[in-house]
Structures are given as C-alpha cells and as structure tokens.
C-alpha cells in the first residue's frame, strides 16, 4: 500500500480518476442518456462531485494518521484542486445553462438568494487555495503561512454544506444532506479532539 502510494504513476492516475465523473456525465449527455433534463443533471453532478472531492481532501489528514499512511498527503492538493475545478464548472454550467450568461440575472440571483450567495462564497473561498496549490506558491508563502491560508478549506466546506442544505430544504429532501453533514462533523470533530488533546498535554 505504502509503495503504491509513492509510485510515480500515482499522481497522474489520481488526476485521471478526478476526471472520470465529469467525462461520464458529458459523454452520457452527448449520447442523449441523461434523461429529460440533461442540463439540470450536469449542474447537479458537478456540484455534488465538488462537495465529494472537498470532503475527501479534508479526510486525508485523519486517514493518514489513523491508518499510519503519511504518503496519503501527496494526494491532498490534487483533491483540493479537483474540488475547486468541479465547483468552478458547477458555477459555469449554472451561469450558462440556467442563466444564458446574462450577467444581470446572475448578479440579481446572487444578491437576492442566500442559497446562491453561499455557493458563490464557497467558490470564492476556494479560489485562493487553488491559486496557491503549486510548489512555487508554497515556497513563496512559506509553509506556516501557506497552511494558515489553507485553513479556509474548513470555511469553504461549511459554506458548501449550507448551499447543499438550502438547495434540498425546499423539497424537504434531507437524506443526502444528513450523510454529508455527519461526514463533515466527524472530520471537524476529529481535528478538534486532536487539537484539545495536544493543548491538554
């Protein structure tokens, strides 16, 4: 397992993996197999995968400690970038297919609707993280400052969860929201537990 994680092909393979859901939905759409409302499907799929990649990125630290796999860290930035790219595609799909690129309508939507606003906030919070995801940016910022900046990922996750909750609340459909909320609570709870035990020592 540890050897596989540090294999030179590991990272390129992980990038290919991140592209699979997008390729799947686009190809199914082109083939006319996305049902009656392909645009809605594309918007939903890109949004939900942004959420999943972000949750996985936040799960790396607990997983590497629990399973004694420090090599997992190699994949954290990739997952974070995947989350950002899917979130950006989600926004662009909405702006294009729902709003026809009409800037007035988009701005109106953002200021009028908390549900849209909090989604945009999540995207904005993830942007500096994606822009500083390169080795040169880590060096330029210095490790400590870089890690501090990237704590924004927690705030982004909370915003993403709220966006998803408000999206689903109108239809009273909370089953998936509960799963992701419990996941995020576990990830944050684990960190809080570790933090307080370190402080206690």
């Amino acid at each position: 397992m540890q050897k596989a994680l540090v294999h030179p092909a590991g990272k390129p393979l992980s990038w290919a993996l991140y592209a699979v859901p997008l390729a799947g939905v686009v190809l199914a759409g082109v083939a006319g197999r996305l049902g009656a409302n392909p645009a809605e499907k594309l918007i939903h799929e890109t949004g939900e995968w942004a959420l999943r990649w972000l949750w996985l990125a936040l799960a790396i630290t607990p997983l590497r400690e629990v399973f004694q796999l420090p090599q997992l860290l190699r994949y954290r930035r990739g997952l974070g970038v995947a989350a950002f790219v899917y979130a950006l595609l989600h926004f662009l799909a909405y702006a294009w297919l729902d709003k026809g690129w009409v800037l007035d309508d988009i701005v109106h939507d953002i200021v009028k609707r908390n549900f849209i606003l909090v989604g945009v906030v999540a995207l904005v919070l993830m942007t500096p993280l994606a822009l500083t995801s390169f080795n040169a940016a880590v060096r330029a910022l210095g490790g400590a400052r870089w890690r501090l900046l990237h704590k924004l990922a927690y705030a982004a996750a909370v915003a993403v969860l709220l966006h998803f909750l408000w999206k689903k609340s109108g239809k009273n459909d909370y089953a998936e929201v509960v799963v992701y909320a419990l996941g995020l609570a576990a990830l944050l709870g684990w960190r809080f537990g570790r933090f307080s035990s370190q402080v206690g020592r």
Binding site: G29, V30, G32, L34, A36, P38, A39
Partner: peptide, 9 residues
C-alpha cells in the same frame, strides 16, 4: 426550460 428539445442546450 422546455424539456425534450436539444439536450444540454
């Protein structure tokens, strides 16, 4: 969005 006309678009 009028369904059944034009896929994604």
């Amino acid at each position: 969005r009028r369904l059944g006309e034009g896929g994604f678009f």
